[in-house]
Simulated assay, not measured.
Amino acid sequence: MTADVFQQLYGFTPEGVWAAPGRVNLIGEHTDYNDGFVLPFALTRTTVAAASRRDDGVLRLHSSAEASGAPVELRLDDLRPGGTHGWTAYPAGIAWALRDAGHRITGADLHYDSTVPIGAGLSSSHALEVVTALALSDLFGLGLERWRLARLCQRAENVFVGAPTGIMDQTASACCTEGHALFLDTRDLSQRHIPLDLAAHGLRLLVIDTQVKHDHSEGGYGDRRRGCEEAAAALGVEALRDIAHDRLDEALARLDDENSRRLVRHVVTENHRVEQVVARLEAGDPRSVGPLLTAGHASLRDDFRVSCPELDLAVATALDTGALGARMTGGGFGGSAIALVEEEAAQKVSDALTAAFRAAGHRPPRIFTATPGPGAHRIS
């Protein structure tokens, strides 16, 4: 289908078709830009790109999600940080970052389709970046390792788009493997793939998209990141990752600012929760992960203060209906929550969530079961 639309748009068959997934972060929120630990997995929902090379310095971009039928045309030589806006800034930023790193990119035609919900905290923008990076790497024979693609995507987003994101989402989309969560150390990018077969234990992980939108390139996300950097400087460490969990109280006592103490407490305890979840999954005990998810939400709500009424309602309703654990996932200020539930309780929890949102006057949430899919790959 994507290749067919490409041919209709551009008048010829694409050289290839690629896919990159969105992601769910099981645990480890706002730790990636603090050099900490994260545990995401790839969704089976993907952004697909059909693409071909050009040799005239032109980048043509088209998305099935846009109302306009005409591709957006950009000149590579004109690309500058902050100079492109809207969804095209993400793929344009990838082309810019590749050229800025010394790679010879001479232009491309691309068409995108996506099943990753936009604005749901499931990394739709990073799927768009990663699929573009992989397509251009393959088309121009760059042979870039997946972790390098993730780094280039982060640079594109930080510098070109202007969003101060960490490295987790890009790495998850690029590097995850099917049936596994990715235990990632964001300092050195070392990875370990942790088996995550919840169905084998009679469990489901529900994703609850509140349909409240957010934008990481402005507002609270950047404020939290700056606050973490300032707290690390005040404590004399490179990043908050360097505060050991058993020295947390000592570190907090050295900070005069209550906001700094809240940020530090969340990051340090969240890193510890990631390590605990990994240990329990490796021990074959996913049910015991539930309370750690719930504790993570409390920390994000009370210390990091990135939750919102819809996310809190989703978590509370899921827990009240029997979920083993629940928390917001993603950067916050909207987006999605996750709930770990017994297989037989999944429909009951889903129905309760829909009823609770209706009673509160909110739009109904979109709810689906998430299973770990593959990372970015070439389809044809």
Rank of each mutant, 00 (worst) to 15 (best):
T186H: 11
T186L: 11
R187D: 09
D188K: 06
L189P: 05
S190C: 08
S190K: 13
Q191P: 04
Q191T: 15
Q191G: 06
R192T: 13
R192N: 11
R192G: 08
H193R: 14
I194K: 05
P195A: 01
P195Q: 03
P195V: 02
L196E: 08
D197V: 10
L198D: 06
L198Q: 05
L198F: 04
A200R: 11
H201T: 08
G202N: 03
G202D: 06
G202C: 10
G202L: 07
L203N: 07
R204E: 12
L205R: 07
L205S: 09
L205V: 09
L205G: 07
V207N: 08
I208P: 04
D209A: 02
D209L: 03
D209Y: 02
V212W: 06
V212L: 11
H214Y: 05
D215G: 01
H216E: 15
S217E: 10
S217A: 15
E218Y: 10
G219H: 01
G219P: 02
G220Q: 13
Y221A: 00
D223Q: 14
R224V: 00
R224S: 01
R225G: 09
R226K: 13
R226V: 00
R226G: 01
G227A: 05
E229R: 14
E229S: 12
A233H: 15
A233G: 14
L235K: 11
L235N: 06
G236A: 09
G236H: 11
A239N: 06
A239P: 01
L240N: 07
L240I: 08
L240T: 12
I243L: 07
I243M: 07
I243A: 09
A244G: 11
A244E: 15
H245I: 13
H245K: 07
H245C: 10
H245F: 14
D246K: 10
D246S: 09
L248V: 01
L248T: 06
D249G: 15
D249T: 13
D249F: 12
D249P: 09
A251F: 14
A251P: 11
A253Y: 07
R254H: 12
L255N: 07
L255A: 03
L255H: 06
L255F: 06
D256N: 14
D257W: 06
E258I: 08
N259H: 15
S260N: 01
S260H: 12
R261L: 01
R262P: 01
R262K: 10
L263V: 08
R265G: 02
R265D: 01
H266D: 03
H266N: 02
V267S: 05
V267W: 02
V268L: 10
V268P: 09
T269F: 03
N271H: 05
H272R: 15
H272I: 02
R273C: 02
R273E: 02
V277W: 09
V277C: 13
V278Q: 11
V278S: 10
A279V: 12
R280Y: 05
R280L: 15
L281R: 07
E282R: 14
E282C: 12
D285H: 12
D285V: 08
P286N: 06
R287F: 12
S288K: 05
V289P: 06
G290N: 09
G290R: 09
P291K: 02
P291G: 03
A295P: 03
A298S: 11
R301C: 00
D302L: 01
F304W: 00
F304P: 00
R305H: 03
V306D: 00
S307K: 00
S307P: 01
S307L: 00
